[in-house]
Design a protein around this nucleic acid. Structure first.
Lengths: 236, 236
DNA sequence: GGAAGCGTTCGGCGCCCGCCGAAACGTCGC
DNA sequence: GCGACGTTTCGGCGGGCGCCGAACGCTTCC
């Protein structure tokens, strides 16, 4: 009876991401950082005026938040849930084909190897870490998706992460996020964010250029492999 | 670099749901059943020829699957993950306003009270069951979202559900699904599906008309309340 | 104060796509 | 075989929306 009303509402939501330019903005914003309107326009290959209109819609809908600063307008995704939603939508559909061209191909390879998804690790690296944590019993995936007590201890002792404040946080400690290159689940939530932050801070991973691709440094590969009982070679 | 290519791909995916008519189809299909093309056309208020074209796109994209039978064409959502994706997208955005009109309002209230989301319970009923299971320690949500051993025993003994085959199933035992009326998490996955099936089979809940709304029967309300240590009144 | 750069507003163009009706195809029932 | 019915194909219409360029407002730097 009211299906049409609900359908209209759903369509409005989906329409936000159904435009190639807006979608390109969102993909760029998936790194969790704040971008200026001009940067996004150039990245997507449209005029500044076009970008302005799109950003108005994204902000008005609540998908993005903005912060005016001087003559710049900084925009970023509203929260981790929004990022997860976008990745889930992208991940639900297989990639049509490998991008052509040398530079595009190299960039794509770098993204597939490892990247940040808003505030946690994704790509082969993210999936590898998640799988290793599962094997070691740090993640319990037999009846859902949760960080085990053992995993919590491990994060405290091996990584030096303070998990004490997590219980007072509304955000879940562990969540699964679908990976659009691997089509597999990787770790998100507070634990995923903490691991990514720790890896960056310790210099174990480093951003590739200005993209959201990340790569293990040489010492990082050794240390992470040791920590997770993995072979360091496939990770590089 | 390749953001535009990824963005285009994402936009194509979102465009599938960005049309009011296609979105209405998907909302109707959320009950998990197979609908004929004509039923969907009538439900959405469009000509049969229009429905045909939309269904072609939904099937071609993999969102839906079809089964031809005589002069009918049955269509349903491809899998539970697809249903979860649609509910997640709808749930991420608040409802604009309550639908007006008596019949519409009644139908909407029924949906909000309780409904099936593909194969598990949603709405206030779904959230209430999930919350009660959490309180009783059947679901562990302190560090993620998982069915506890205690919860598994409970399903075996109290509900008579055979959980033995679950470990051989690729689908997760417990998953969270976002509710678009409650904007809260409820239980999905194998456990959610088993509970919904059991409730229906035992006559504790019943479908309201031909919609996906469900309602506790009088004996059902008593038994479920007893089972979950709840007050039966708010559930009705 | 002037120039340069970022962002916005506005008008207008063009195209895509969702819609329908009419006609045709298949299947079912008599 | 014949009509009824569900579905499909095709042509054509119309509206919405994404795009740009030009002009303007505002901040910053010199």
């Amino acid at each position: 009876m009211t299906d049409r009303a609900h359908g209209t509402r759903l369509a409005e939501a989906a329409a936000l991401l159904a435009d190639p330019t807006r979608a390109t903005f969102c993909v760029a914003l998936l790194d969790g950082r704040a971008w200026t309107a001009g940067e996004l326009a150039r990245r997507a290959g449209v005029a500044a005026s076009t970008a302005t209109e799109h950003l108005h819609r994204l902000v008005a809908s609540g998908l993005c938040v903005e912060r005016k600063q001087g003559r710049h307008r900084y925009v970023q995704l509203a929260d981790p849930e929004t990022a997860a939603l976008i990745e889930a939508l992208a991940g639900h559909f297989p990639m049509v084909e490998a991008p052509t061209g040398l530079r595009a191909s190299a960039a794509s390879t770098a993204l597939a190897r490892g990247r940040t998804c808003y505030d946690h690790l994704a790509g082969r690296l993210g999936v590898a870490v998640t799988d290793a944590m599962t094997t070691l019993g740090h993640l319990d995936r037999s009846a859902g998706f949760a960080l085990s007590d053992k995993g919590r201890d491990w994060m405290e002792t091996a990584l030096g992460i303070d998990t004490g404040a997590w219980s007072r946080n509304r955000r879940a400690a562990a969540k699964e996020c679908l990976d659009w290159t691997e089509r597999r689940t990787h770790l998100a939530g507070l634990a995923g964010a903490a691991i990514c932050a720790r890896f960056l801070e310790a210099g174990w991973i480093r951003r590739v250029g200005t993209t959201r691709a990340v790569r293990l440094t040489d010492p990082g590969a050794e240390l992470v492999a040791d920590l997770l009982d993995l072979d360091p070679e496939p990770l590089r």
